[in-house]
Amino acid sequence: MSREYATNDWYPVADAARMIPGHGFTTRLLGEPLEVSGSFENPVVTARDGRMLPVQVRYGHVWTTTGSAPRPLFDIAEADETDRTFVPCGAVQVRCSPLRAVENFLDIAHFPFVHTGILGEEPHTQVAPYKVEIREDADEVWATQIGFHQPQAAKSATEAIETRYEYRVPAPTTAVLYKTCPPKPEAWDVIAIFVQPVAEDMCIAWPWMALYDDVSPYADLVQFQQEIFLQDRSILENQKPTLLPLDPRMEIPTRCDLTSVVYRRWLKRKGATYGALTTAA
């Protein structure tokens, strides 16, 4: 039963901009409707049967869970560094599996073709070897020692640079990336994608960033991330099958797909199969 694992994770259902007191709204989580009301500081989330669900406000979003034994929400330490600029980028609906959205976020090989002129460009297509591991203590997937040539790595970048990346998957529907911060080389910029699984074949992505950038206007920061994510959306809605195949025979990876391979293996091992295809079709 693919919902079982998923019900005990926390999911974003609103950001501050969406929470207008007196204007509750309906959304969907794991195929079920939810009512979201209250204020951003004191949100109320109600299930269809009238049950009030647990909530917490973290990382610029309202989080909830429907299960009876929720796992704790993962920690992003940089969220407490007050000199960062925190940028919630709104909600984007995508007709794809929540897991496909996360996997796309973990992939760098598509940069030259999908994010042309920003995150990559031909002929700089090569992906050098990097490290991927499942950190058993935290039960997270980590990919480290990644480097990629980027024409405009961030809004704050003034020239093409060799960007360094680390990726982290703290929960099946969340990916966090740490990348070179052009104005502050000793620190990482943090960009995350929090995915709300609306159904197995439909999700809402809530991109969020924690950056060091005192120069760029706020609206530029939001749009930089929205531009990139909306480029991905047109890919995500055209991947077939819609669900993420976990049978290794269904799609053929190559060396640069190690993060995706380990992510799929990790999901399968945990039984985190909501949004996944577990048998070959």
């Binding site: 598509h110 031909e122 090569q126």
Partner: peptide, 22 residues
């Protein structure tokens, strides 16, 4: 469009941009 893999007219994969030497 996604990762730029090239396929020959017979369908066979000719080129993987992420690994140009492969």
């Amino acid at each position: 469009l996604y990762h730029g893999w090239h396929f020959r007219k017979d369908g066979g994969c000719a080129y993987i941009p992420a690994h140009p030497e492969l």
